[in-house]
C-alpha cells in the first residue's frame, strides 16, 4: 500500500470530519443562506436607490456587487483557518494531529479545504438566489468556465489561510489581524466598487494580491463585466500567486510547528 494513498485517505478523513461536525449544527446552512439573502436584498435596493457612475443601469451595478458579495464569503473562509487551528489547540486535538503519521502540517492544509469548498458552495447559492429572487442575469455561455477558475482561485487564496494558521500556532491567537485584513481586501479587491475609484497607490496595492484578479475574472465570466486587463492575464496572475505562495506558506507552517515543538509551546493555548 503506497504512502500516497494512505495520505490521500487521511486528507479526505479531515474533510469528512469537518463535514460531520458542520452537519451536527443543523440550522447553520439555513441561517447562512438567510444572511446571504438579506445581503442580496440590501444591495438590490441600494442599487436602485443610488446612481453609480460607470454603470449603465442599476442592474449592471447589482450584477457587479453580487459577484463581490459571493467572493467576500470565500475570502472570509480563507481566514477561518486560524480560528480552526485555535480550536484544535484549545481542545488538545492538535496534539493528536502532531503525533499522527499524517502530521499536523498536512492536517492543517486539509483543514482549510472544507471552509473554502463550503464558501464556494454558498457563493453559488447566493448567485442562484440573486437570479431567482432579484432577477440577476448570468452570462450563461461563460459560466461553466468559472468552475476551473474557482479551483485556481482557491489554490491562490489557500496560502493566506496557511500563513495565518502558522502565525496562530506561534502566537496562539486566532484574530491575528485577519478581520482588518478581510476589510482591507474587500476594499482593495473591488468587491463593492471598481478599484479605478481608488487613489493610484491603492490601486497598485490592490494588484499585489490574488483577490483582485480573481474578482475581475469571476465578474467577467459570470455577468460579463468588462475587465481592466485581458482575462488570460488575470488567470496567469492567479496561477503565479498560487505557485509562489503555496510553497512559502507550507514552509512557514512547517517551521511554525517545528518551532512549537522545539520551544514546547505546541501544547499551549
Amino acid at each position: 500500500m503506497s504512502e500516497a494513498a494512505c495520505a490521500r485517505r487521511a486528507f479526505v478523513a479531515v474533510l469528512r470530519r469537518d463535514l460531520a461536525i458542520f452537519m451536527s449544527y443543523r440550522t447553520r446552512v439555513f441561517s447562512q443562506a438567510m444572511s446571504a439573502l438579506f445581503s442580496l436584498a440590501l444591495f438590490y435596493y441600494v442599487s436602485r436607490l443610488v446612481h453609480v457612475s460607470g454603470f449603465g443601469s442599476p442592474d449592471r451595478y447589482y450584477a457587479f456587487v453580487v459577484v463581490g458579495l459571493a467572493l467576500l464569503g470565500v475570502i472570509y473562509a480563507c481566514f477561518t483557518t486560524p480560528a480552526l487551528v485555535r480550536q484544535e489547540l484549545v481542545a488538545g486535538t492538535l496534539e493528536r494531529l502532531v503525533l499522527s503519521p499524517f502530521g499536523a502540517v498536512r492536517a492543517i492544509i486539509a483543514m482549510t479545504i472544507f471552509p473554502l469548498l463550503y464558501a464556494a458552495l454558498l457563493a453559488t447559492l447566493s448567485l442562484g438566489l440573486a437570479c431567482a429572487v432579484f432577477g440577476l442575469k448570468l452570462h450563461w455561455s461563460s459560466v461553466p468556465l468559472a468552475v476551473p477558475v474557482t479551483a485556481l482561485a482557491l489554490f491562490a487564496f489557500l496560502p493566506f489561510g496557511l500563513l495565518f494558521a502558522a502565525l496562530t500556532v506561534i502566537v496562539k491567537q486566532d484574530n491575528v489581524g485577519t478581520s482588518w485584513l478581510v476589510g482591507c481586501l474587500s476594499l482593495l479587491g473591488g468587491l463593492y466598487f471598481p478599484i479605478a475609484l481608488l487613489p493610484h497607490w491603492l490601486q497598485v496595492a490592490g494588484k499585489l494580491q490574488p483577490f483582485t484578479p480573481a474578482t475581475e475574472a469571476f465578474r467577467h465570466l459570470l455577468v460579463n463585466t468588462p475587465t481592466s486587463e485581458p482575462l488570460a492575464l488575470s488567470l496567469l496572475k492567479l496561477a503565479l500567486f498560487a505557485a509562489s505562495l503555496l510553497p512559502i506558506s507550507i514552509f512557514a507552517l512547517s517551521a511554525a510547528v517545528r518551532l512549537g515543538q522545539r520551544r514546547a509551546t505546541i501544547t499551549e493555548y
Binding site: A10, A13, V14, R17, A91, T93, R96, P101, F102
Partner: peptide, 30 residues
C-alpha cells in the same frame, strides 16, 4: 501517547467518527 486529562476529542463527533478519523490519520492501509 495517551495524554492526561480528558482533552483531545471533538465534542460533536461520534465515537465511531473519532475511531475512523484516528485510523485514517494513522495512515493504516485500506
Amino acid at each position: 501517547l495517551l495524554a492526561a486529562g480528558d482533552r483531545g476529542l471533538y465534542a460533536r463527533l461520534s465515537v465511531r467518527g473519532h475511531l475512523d478519523f484516528c485510523a485514517r490519520i494513522a495512515m493504516l492501509p485500506r
